[in-house]
């Protein structure tokens, strides 16, 4: 019967073996404060002076507040920031950026090693490119590089939009969060590039065309045209966004719109607005 005592003793000792699933809770990432070397306007001017895309080799730091969110999927692998002087697009190679960078949060970009270029007439900041690349900049990636380059600062209030309700759209507003009041809806179309339905612009009653069957993703975009004091703007939305299938208002509906002011040289019209979500469209009447 000694055996029993043995067994119980050893069994008891073994119960004290260490725990494997006991972890400390990670701390909240500290926020940083850096001193910008350039305002965003000064930074963008570097591109405009050259007129061509270039790799940044100076220790430039810019700061700005986040104005966009990819939560609904209308933005994809890009994000806009702006300071008091200007706004700029950052091309970052990951989805779910809204999880890392919050609307109104200040972020700092250490631009050395990145590349500034343009697309359709809009300046953007991204990664360097290999030979024969389709775009002037690539994405900032992978994560380890993003962590080195983009630093998270204090969270704060969202920026106030620049009011462009008079229909006059200055170049300096490109990349800024803007607002149009009393814009009149004229209709929405998608461009059937692959001629799945005969080709050309085809009217739809939703904000985008999520079910486009063609190979080109261009056909998934919806072009919702509004009139702002005689200026046409295009609220352009992705077929991958969560609101893509939502119905647009009826023609003639008056709306207040907020979004990023995008200029696309080839667009008809060239003034495009990218919204974060349908909350950015407020129906007036």
């Amino acid at each position: 019967m000694n055996a029993k005592k043995y067994i119980l003793g050893i069994a008891a000792a073994l119960m004290l073996v260490g725990c494997y699933e006991d972890f400390d809770i990670p701390a909240v990432d500290p926020t940083v404060t850096l001193t910008p070397t350039h305002t965003i306007a000064e930074f963008k001017a570097m591109f405009n002076e050259r007129g061509v895309a270039f790799d940044i080799t100076d220790d430039i730091v810019i700061a700005g507040k986040v104005t966009t969110s990819d939560e609904t999927g209308n933005f994809y692998k890009n994000m806009y920031i702006q300071d008091e002087t200007a706004g700029i697009e950052l091309r970052i190679g990951k989805s779910g950026l809204y999880n890392d960078y919050k609307l109104g949060q200040t972020i700092y970009v250490k631009a050395n090693g990145l590349r500034m270029g343009s697309y359709g007439g809009m300046v953007n900041l991204g990664g360097t490119i290999p030979e024969n690349y389709d775009y002037e900049t690539s994405y900032i990636e992978p994560q380890a590089v993003i962590d080195l380059v983009i630093k998270k600062g204090e969270k704060g209030e969202r920026v106030q939009p620049l009011d462009l309700s008079d229909g006059k759209i200055p170049v300096s507003s490109y990349g800024l969060w803007v607002r149009f009041e009393n814009a009149v809806f004229e209709g929405c179309t998608f461009y059937d590039r692959d001629a799945t339905m005969g080709g050309g612009d085809i009217a739809i009653d939703t904000w985008a065309n999520k079910d486009y069957k063609g190979e080109s993703s261009v056909g998934k975009y919806g072009n919702a045209i509004f009139d702002v004091n005689g200026t046409k703007i295009n609220v352009r939305s992705s077929g991958y966004s969560k609101f893509a299938g939502e119905k647009t208002p009826a023609k003639g509906t008056v709306c207040n719109i907020e979004g990023i002011m995008v200029y696309y040289a080839g667009g008809k019209p060239a003034f495009q607005i990218s919204i974060n979500s349908l909350d950015d469209i407020e129906i007036v009447k």
């Binding site: 360097t128 290999p130 992978p142």
Partner: peptide, 26 residues
């Protein structure tokens, strides 16, 4: 995609950063 520079950066990250090489729980 022909982007060898970025491939090298990725290799560097794998070699130097635990958050790249393994799950980054934090």
């Amino acid at each position: 995609q022909g982007d060898y520079a970025k491939a090298d950066i990725v290799r560097w990250a794998w070699g130097s950063d635990w958050g790249t090489r393994q799950i980054d729980w934090d």
